[in-house]
Design a protein around this nucleic acid. Structure first.
Length: 872
RNA sequence: GGGUCGGUGGUCUAGUUGGUUAUGACACCUCCUUCACACGGAGGAAGCCGACGGUUCGAAUCCGUCCCGACCCA
């Protein structure tokens, strides 16, 4: 506890606490068997070197949850990993060093990739620290480290022995630029303007036929043609044979339900392979295989004179040739959806190659996914839809370098493929020999190591297993996965698949899905739109706490949020408020405050403490459900309006000049409510709360404190306190309206209540600056009933379809007569179509006004249930 | 084409187990320097709660149709 500076300097405080925390163990996971675990499966980001605002949103959510659960007493593990492997790094290294990866050894290339990755990680860690994220850096991991990718290999080996992993030749998505197979999840469909070519195929012993295609470059790969069986134009032509123009192979016309008769001429060509549909037809109708594309996206020898041209070149050249030969009848623009590599946007091809696959068991995955609790709930349907639409198994082999090696060798004598034993990992088959010396099939002793490597998702999809200590510890699902909705089909999907396959359970209990962060103009952030905001910019201007609050209040978790500078501004103002409250309080409390026994609480104290207790409970409920927006809103509301505006004003008198016992009660209540508020706020604003905490007579770090648990006070006392606060606020408002200073003297005020409620006038009198008299009943001034205020929620259900008519009667009646009847009878009666209806007192109120000509020096105010008379 | 989410004062946002007077923030206007705070306080203007229809005594909230936007999938 020390002198509190007049203003809060976020830069200095954040810097100070960031360093202090780094050297302490406030955020360390204790692996304490006595306390419940709260383990977060933190996303291992790709080390791009830049933690953007979208990442920051997700990390804010995790940090809110981590900090809240620490206060709740859970043993929190908030680790941080890095998903290092992958193509972008390879490309970056090639660029930076101006080489092609094949020009150096695999080892050298890998070395450079690791070096590059480490630099990128450093930059991102710094941003994480700036933003106040509370990872336990003793639990950092990098998927490129052997002790991580060794586990990736172990998981591969286990899945192979359980029949999940297999090797096969099957058509796969192929990126001709990256020159590797890619999984369905890594293909994105984009709409493009293309050209639809109408081409005549000459009949062989029958009439010609005209087909429409957007891909004439595939003519050499044509192995069939198809029409819809319901298409009358081609009714008698199924089985006819045609010659493929320019290339000469003969193909047959088949009927298939999947042909869209409305597209083009209703006849299409089947190639190996234009798209997945072609693969289906190829399998179903047992067609020939005529692969015409090379791995680097060119045409091969089957294309004859077009061999060696790129796909784009060949498209034009073949169209021109068709024109010359008279086969091209027409061309027109058309909308087409093109599958592209999600990393480089190159249109993908489908090639049939020997690859490694992971079997996709849709049912098993969905069963597990349903057992996970999704926040928001509807995010599950994203996963469900994707899973149900899966057509192909997951191809996990990549023809690249910087990735986890597939631990397998092929016997050079008999071709038998040997997969490493789980004791052997980590192992690189391109440099290491298998542990078995001879081939179990043929006894051969020469092995060729597998050069294919694994899909990077094979690394990251064991992250919950890895952070939970697998395989050394029995795997229990961790508590939280937080991620963006854009990677549900990849990271979430693969993680569920892998955990089901390896451990037959769910990876995590809760899946919290964050939305995207848009720019202030509501559009996606982009440099060209000039709506790009970096977290660091915000921190520089307003501090990390303000940034974090803005992220929390941007919207409910799951929905996309728009970054708003004004949210940052208002957060910053709120912090000033918190600071000033702390400054005020620190002048009134000392080391002995917390230990005051049996404080003689007055009504105001009871009120703020029970209110605080309820807020703490309700905020905790929100935090459990990851409703960060409403949690923070509620804390702010409490701190600003209840604690600062109302309570502080009420107890100033006692604090400044109360008798010792009365003063001590106020000090104790203030101390309790304020420190509870700081704790509730600390997940959102870790720096200012820590700084404020350190200026109050408290122990240790606010982040190691306990979530506030206050006893629920007596409700009657609380109601009295609330009424006092309401009267004080009303008088304050009136003074302001009258242009009077808040401390203006009043002759007296009289508070009239319908019931006998012994209000504690001590604080109130001091606050309004005049003596206070509490009376039961109605003030002795001339009040005129002017209106009825109908209580629809009481009246509506009671009268149902008569409600409209009853309301009409009440509104038409003279309020004075209603009041008279009410006072004598306790209810009012109406005649409704010959029927007498009784309207009870709780169904309406009579609104009264002071008669304007009274001319007295008296002001009548309404404060909650009380009528307040002010005499100047 | 299928699916999901959303459409609330100028802007962003809360509220949807139905209750008639819709929350807060930012911006705007007016007033107020009072012993934590003018980055404050008190107040004001500003909404046909996307449109239409239905259910109901009563609809931002429930149902239907449509329009618009975002995202996912084909």
């Amino acid at each position: 506890m020390s002198e509190v500076p007049d203003s809060y300097d976020p830069d200095a405080a954040e810097q100070k606490w960031h360093e202090e925390w780094a050297d302490s163990d406030v955020y360390s996971y204790d692996d304490d068997p006595e306390r419940p675990d709260y383990i977060i499966d933190t996303p291992p980001p790709y080390p791009t070197g830049n933690l953007h605002i979208g990442n920051a949103l997700g990390w804010c959510y995790m940090d809110f949850a981590a900090r809240y659960h620490r206060l709740k007493g859970d043993d929190v593990l908030f680790p941080q990993g890095w998903d290092c492997h992958g193509l972008p790094t390879e490309v970056k290294v090639e660029e930076n060093r101006d080489i092609h990866r094949t020009e150096v050894s695999r080892e050298q290339f890998r070395e450079w990739c690791i070096e590059h990755t480490n630099d990128q990680i450093g930059a991102m860690k710094e941003t994480m620290g700036t933003l106040g994220f509370s990872q336990d850096w003793n639990h950092e991991y990098r998927t490129m480290d052997p002790d991580y990718w060794g586990e990736t290999q172990r998981s591969f080996v286990e899945m192979a022995s359980d029949g999940y992993v297999y090797q096969d030749e099957h058509p796969v998505n192929w990126c001709p630029r990256c020159e590797t197979a890619i999984a369905d999840a890594e293909v994105e469909n984009e709409d493009h303007e293309g050209t639809l070519y109408y081409i005549t195929f000459e009949g062989v012993g029958n009439d010609d036929i005209e087909i429409a295609t957007t891909r004439p470059e595939l003519l050499a790969a044509c192995v069939g043609m198809a029409v819809s069986p319901d298409d009358e134009r081609y009714e008698d032509r199924i089985g006819d044979t045609f010659e493929v123009p320019l290339f000469g192979q003969e193909v047959e016309l088949i009927a298939d339900d999947d042909v869209d008769g409305d597209f083009g001429t209703g006849a299409v060509m089947i190639c190996t392979f234009g798209d997945k549909q072609d693969v289906d037809w190829w399998v179903e109708h047992d067609l020939d295989l005529r692969p015409v594309f090379t791995e680097d996206g060119k045409l091969n020898e089957l294309a004859g004179e077009f061999e060696g041209q790129t796909i784009d070149e060949a498209k034009d050249a073949i169209a021109t040739a068709l024109q010359k030969s008279g086969h091209l009848n027409d061309e027109e623009p058309t909308e087409q959806s093109v599958g592209q590599c999600w990393r480089c946007d190159t249109p993908i091809e489908i090639l049939s190659k020997e690859q490694w696959f992971v079997r996709v068991d849709q049912e098993e995955i969905l069963e597990q996914a349903q057992a996970v609790e999704w926040f928001p709930e509807h995010m599950y349907s994203r996963l469900e839809e994707w899973t149900e639409g899966m057509e192909w198994d997951w191809v996990i082999s990549r023809q690249r370098v910087f990735a986890t090696p597939i631990p397998a060798w092929e016997c050079e004598d008999c071709g038998h493929v040997h997969i490493a034993d789980s004791e052997e990992v980590p192992v690189d088959p391109t440099t290491d020999e298998p542990a078995v010396e001879t081939c179990i099939e043929c006894g051969g002793e020469s092995w060729t190591g597998e050069t294919d490597v694994m899909d990077t998702w094979m690394d990251s999809s064991i992250s919950p297993l890895y952070v939970a200590g697998w395989p050394d510890a029995d795997f229990e699902p961790v508590q939280l996965r937080e991620q963006g909705h854009d990677i549900i089909r990849t990271w979430a999907f693969y993680t569920i698949l892998r955990t089901a396959a390896l451990e037959d359970t769910i990876p995590w209990e809760d899946a919290l899905i964050n939305g995207m962060v848009f720019g202030e103009d509501g559009n996606k952030m982009s440099k060209s739109r000039d709506n790009f905001v970096q977290p660091e910019e915000v921190v520089e201007e307003y501090g990390a706490d303000a940034f974090r609050q803005a992220m929390a209040l941007g919207g409910q978790p799951g929905s996309d949020i728009q970054f708003q500078w004004k949210e940052v501004t208002s957060a910053s103002r709120f912090q000033t408020k918190v600071w000033n409250i702390t400054k005020f309080a620190s002048g009134h409390v000392d080391e002995s405050t917390a230990d005051i026994t049996d404080p003689a609480y007055r009504d105001a104290d009871e009120w703020i403490l029970s209110k605080c207790a309820r807020v703490a409970e309700s905020v905790a409920e929100d935090m459990e459900e990851y409703r960060f927006d409403s949690a923070l809103r509620e804390v702010r509301e409490f701190v600003w309006h209840d604690l600062a505006d109302d309570y502080l004003e009420l107890v100033k008198g006692r604090l400044y000049e109360g008798r010792p016992g009365e003063r001590k009660a106020a000090q104790h209540a203030l101390y309790t409510a304020l420190t509870a508020s700081l704790r509730m706020l600390s997940p959102f604003a870790p720096f200012i709360t820590e700084e404020a905490w350190s200026h109050l007579p408290t122990d240790g770090s606010v982040h190691n404190a306990a979530w506030p648990e206050l006893p629920e006070g007596d409700t009657e006392t609380e109601r009295r306190g609330e009424l006092i606060a309401a009267v004080a606020a009303t008088v304050r408002g009136w003074k302001s309206d009258e242009g009077k200073p808040l401390n203006a003297d009043l002759d007296r005020i009289e508070v009239y209540l319908d019931e006998d409620l012994p209000l504690d006038t001590y604080d109130l009198a001091d606050t309004v600056n005049g003596p206070v008299y509490v009376e039961q009943g109605r003030p002795n001034i001339e009040l005129v009933p002017v209106d009825v205020d109908i209580e629809h929620s009481e009246l509506g259900p009671a009268f149902r379809d008569q409600a409209g008519a009853v309301i009409g009667k009440l509104e038409a009646a003279d309020p004075a007569e209603l009041q008279a009847e009410l006072e004598t009878e306790g209810h009012v009666e109406f005649d409704l179509d010959g029927e007498t209806v009784t309207v009870d007192a709780e169904m309406f109120d009579i609104v009264e006004e002071q008669r304007s000509e009274s001319g007295e020096e008296v002001v009548v105010l309404e404060a909650g249930d009380a009528t307040v008379l002010v005499v100047e």
